[in-house]
Design a protein around this nucleic acid. Structure first.
Lengths: 222, 222
DNA sequence: ACCAAGATAGACTGATCAGTCGGTTTGTAA
DNA sequence: TTACAAACCGACTGATCAGTCTATCTTGGT
């Protein structure tokens, strides 16, 4: 499926194509797609316009390529840090096991985002945008789908509430994104252990079932 | 400060200007700013280009006006449903009072978003975007700042965790946005009382302090 | 040494679009 | 009724930009 020789060559002589992608990433997150003409990208990459369009047939294809690149990097980073051996018997997990796995994925993702701030900003700004067409989006399995298995397992043993799994996934995802956005603006925070703990517990708490006392309080509110 | 006569006249003879704003909103949320030429907006509003630029000096000014319009609508909707008499003595609130107020604001906001899906989509897509310049953004007090007072009060009496108030605000905001996005795609869900309860408790839980048992679990995970 | 294929270059083009301009209509105040 | 301003119209323009085209350079296989 892959041409290994080619891959290796490209890996050790990345040059123009990679420069273009790098320059595009920098400019896109600063100015957005539309305020970044291809001429500006090629200039920043020290490359002629013709070269840019030799590697990417259209501007849109450049954007897609960048999106795929980033998604795949994230995915492989998560795979490394949370190997599948971490999912023992999907039908026989207790709360601690689930929380353990959830924590590892959560931690890896935040770490990767903080280590790759440009890539994070790109995803954060554009992964919902109309510029990335559905076809492209479908070409990568979502990095967050790791979590779906967990949600279903957790719901089965009443560790999680009964909201639809897709919604839980969305809530967790946006919690992570919001956290990272804040952490990137407040650099030293992530060093503090108690901040990590609070953030993680805050994220985890969203998933927990409604307790009796909570229901009561809400009814009284109403 | 305001010219009442003018305001009333505009209110009862909205016509062109409002048509333009309405058409722009519809098109922007479907296609984004850049893929929506002004010519398309004026056509959809049954108006000549000249008219559009008579009311809005530039396209950017149209975008800003739309943003301000929507923010102000939301703000006034929240003010109505949560009058200031709901904030009794800021220095003497117990958990139930805080939760009560928090619930009212939360509920009003979700209701308004679901009742005004286009306005919601606009804010959801564009309020972070670079197209809305900082100056414009500062011209409206953020609708969510209502919550800030609550967070500080809650933290004082240890109802909330110790994460920075700005971060808590961000987490709650993104929880609401994610919820609404999901609810708009799954229309019947919001009718179910237990979904409302679960969603609210999920949002509220993010704010709660880390308990002893939670800390223990996390340490074991590590 | 030579050749073919891919990579690189940058001047150029055709389309698009924000914003202008000169003119017409409408509303209102005197 | 007149007069004046604000609202409205749509053909036009100047700038911008994605993508093309032709020519040159590099490289690896023979």
């Amino acid at each position: 499926m892959f041409n290994i020789k080619n891959t290796l060559i490209k890996k050790f002589a990345p040059s123009k194509r990679e420069h273009i992608l790098k320059a595009a990433l920098d400019l896109f997150i600063q100015q957005g797609f539309e305020k970044t003409p291809t001429s500006m990208i090629s200039k920043a990459a020290n490359v002629a316009t013709g070269t840019l369009f030799h590697h990417f047939k259209t501007k849109e294809e450049l954007i897609s390529a960048l999106y795929l690149d980033i998604k795949l990097s994230l995915q492989s980073a998560l795979l490394v840090s949370t190997g599948s051996e971490l999912l023992p018997d999907k039908n026989n997990m207790d709360e601690l096991m689930i929380k353990n796995i959830f924590y590892r994925v959560w931690f890896s993702m935040i770490s990767w985002f903080l280590d790759n701030p440009n890539e994070f900003k790109f995803l954060s700004q554009f992964s919902d945008s109309a510029h990335i067409n559905g076809e492209t989006r479908e070409r990568v399995e979502d990095a967050f789908s790791e979590w779906k298995v967990l949600f279903e397992a957790g719901q089965k043993i009443h560790v999680f509430n009964k909201l639809p799994a897709d919604l839980l996934l969305g809530l967790v995802t946006s919690h992570v994104f919001t956290s990272c956005n804040f952490l990137l603006d407040n650099n030293s925070l992530w060093q503090k252990k108690n901040v990590q703990v609070s953030l993680f517990e805050s994220c985890w708490s969203q998933l927990m079932p409604t307790t009796q006392s909570q229901s009561v309080a809400l009814v009284k509110v109403k």
